[in-house]
Design a protein around this nucleic acid. Structure first.
Lengths: 221, 221
DNA sequence: ACCTGAACACCGTTCAAGT
DNA sequence: ACCTGAACACCGTTCAAGT
């Protein structure tokens, strides 16, 4: 298992795959996720058929990008584990995530049940969550973060803030900073504040095979 | 100006319009926003053409639903202004929003610049924000909420939490409760905590005509 | 093996013909 | 005035023919 697990491709095929991923990242950032696959293929300099040879479907192409971002984020997290101040290491990672939310938007979009159903994404996501958990526990041991929050709680909070910050990226970049400050305040060890209700959600909670899709999707009204 | 500003429709037309809105709300909740307009028309018992006579485009149909939700939410906010405890009135409204996020998802999706560009949505959104502002100031005067957050800060934070809660609605409903508690902690008047950086974003900040679309949409990479 | 673009199916939208 | 469904354009996906 490792980097070259994907059975070796012909040189030109490998190059096309990389070009497609690069072009797709660009195009999705510019025109949004609904951008046509035709433009992606054109910008990558290949035929439309080649896109579907490398990625069985548009969703798979998106998933590949998401996995890339998840892995990068995980790597940043592991580096942060070596930083001297446990609290600041965690907060700076959060801050970086929020600031990168323009480009990493796909990352956070992927943390919904639809996408987590995909195996590769779920695996990369688990790895990230474990790293986040290590960072969080370290910060908690140092007394920088309240002890009752779990990594899943934190991930959800940050996901939300990132999406909100992204939605308003054009109108006022300063609000992102303020959201970060609010997250810090939420995580601060509370003096007389009540603890979080319920019990801390665990990684396993997120990995129940998404019950929806066609099982019990009927709404009330 | 008022409720019957929309010039009177023929009886059957008015009925079709309502049926379409109802069917669309249902279908979007079940199958998501990408559900086909064909199914909506079928469930409403009208031809596809009728849908486009009432709503010039699928986006307009969605916008109509969003405006409905924004108005409802605004009404709940005004009612909360009359509740005795200023702090709890605000927090309960937030809690209600998060719990309704499954059905009100469209509401929060609409608080991105793309949608705020639409006049009707922007107006309904302004009204909601003004109500929220009144609730917030009242809670701040009562000392229940730190004085440096603005209604826009709060709206963004809640939007994020709602979307995160929605994304995990199937896996663990308890996490929503915990997110609410985190929001409460973030808003608590902080003892020795640093104030939010920058200056409080105002309603006007959100209403700059979204600069994007085709002006300066070029990304870095 | 892999690439390509014409062909297919699907969905949002339009419009000529109906009442 | 309003309704309808066939027709159009567009986009994701497939596949027979090429190298």
């Amino acid at each position: 298992m490792g980097e070259t697990a994907h059975r070796t491709l012909r040189a030109d095929a490998e190059r096309n795959r990389r070009r497609l991923l690069h072009a797709a990242t660009e195009v999705f950032c510019e025109r949004g996720i609904d951008a046509g696959v035709g433009e992606i293929a054109r910008r990558a300099g290949v035929g439309r058929g080649t896109l579907f040879r490398n990625f069985p479907t548009k969703e798979h192409l998106i998933a590949a990008i998401v996995v890339e971002r998840l892995r990068e984020s995980c790597a940043r997290g592991r580096k942060a584990l070596e930083a001297p101040d446990p609290g600041e290491a965690l907060f700076e990672l959060i801050e970086a995530s929020i600031c990168r939310s323009a480009t990493d938007r796909a990352l956070f979009d992927a943390l919904a049940d639809t996408w987590l159903a995909k195996d590769e994404i779920r695996d990369a996501h688990s790895a990230l969550l474990e790293t986040l958990d290590a960072l969080l526990r370290r910060a908690q041991r140092a007394g920088a973060v309240r002890p009752d929050v779990s990594a899943v709680d934190l991930m959800m909070l940050v996901k939300g803030v990132c999406e909100a910050a992204f939605a308003f990226r054009h109108v006022n970049p300063e609000v992102a900073m303020r959201q970060i400050d609010l997250v810090r305040a939420a995580l601060r060890p509370a003096a007389g504040a009540p603890p979080l209700r319920g019990h801390p959600p665990t990684l396993a909670d997120l990995q129940q095979p998404a019950a929806g899709d066609d099982a019990k999707a009927r709404p009330a009204a």
